[in-house]
């Protein structure tokens, strides 16, 4: 009985991870500008990664596996926003975005006003 349940759990987690990766790819194609594509690039995979490593950690429940899984997820969750932030700032500073897609651009306004602190 137990292995069957384990298989079902594995199937669900792996499939949801795969779906998230597909969504990231499709988002890359369908979102209109760099800033929107960044959203597709950073978020779905974190969930996919959590699902997959959770499954690995549960199936092989040893201290080494669990700690390594935690480390993997933590690093991905910390580095993905960092990369996104770098790219987003470069995109905004070098005007590689489409202002007509924005409701407001308060960063551009602050930069023009020149009241940025740094």
């Amino acid at each position: 009985m137990t292995p069957a349940i384990g298989d079902v759990v594995t199937a669900v987690l792996v499939l949801s991870a795969a779906l998230m990766c597909l969504a990231a790819g499709v988002g890359l194609l369908r979102f209109p500008d760099v800033l929107s594509r960044l959203h597709a690039a950073t978020k779905p995979q974190i969930f996919g990664l959590i699902a997959v490593t959770l499954d690995v950690a549960v199936n092989n429940f040893t201290l080494g596996t669990v700690t390594l899984s935690v480390a993997i997820v933590a690093f991905q969750a910390l580095t993905a926003p960092m990369a996104a932030h770098l790219i987003a700032r470069v995109a905004h500073d070098t005007d590689r975005f489409r202002p007509e897609l924005l409701v407001v651009d308060e960063l551009g306004r602050a930069n023009r006003r020149g009241d940025r602190g740094d």
């Binding site: 990766c21 790819g25 890359l28 690039a41 995979q45 997959v52 499954d55 092989n60 991905q76």
Partner: peptide
């Protein structure tokens, strides 16, 4: 920038796929 983002996504997909393979074949 689009290319960099896309290559990030590619790496993340590879990570997830490797993890999925581990999960299915039950090894670490």
């Amino acid at each position: 920038l689009d290319r960099v983002i896309a290559s990030d996504v590619l790496v993340a997909t590879v990570i997830c796929a490797l993890g999925a393979e581990m999960a299915i074949n039950r090894h670490v």
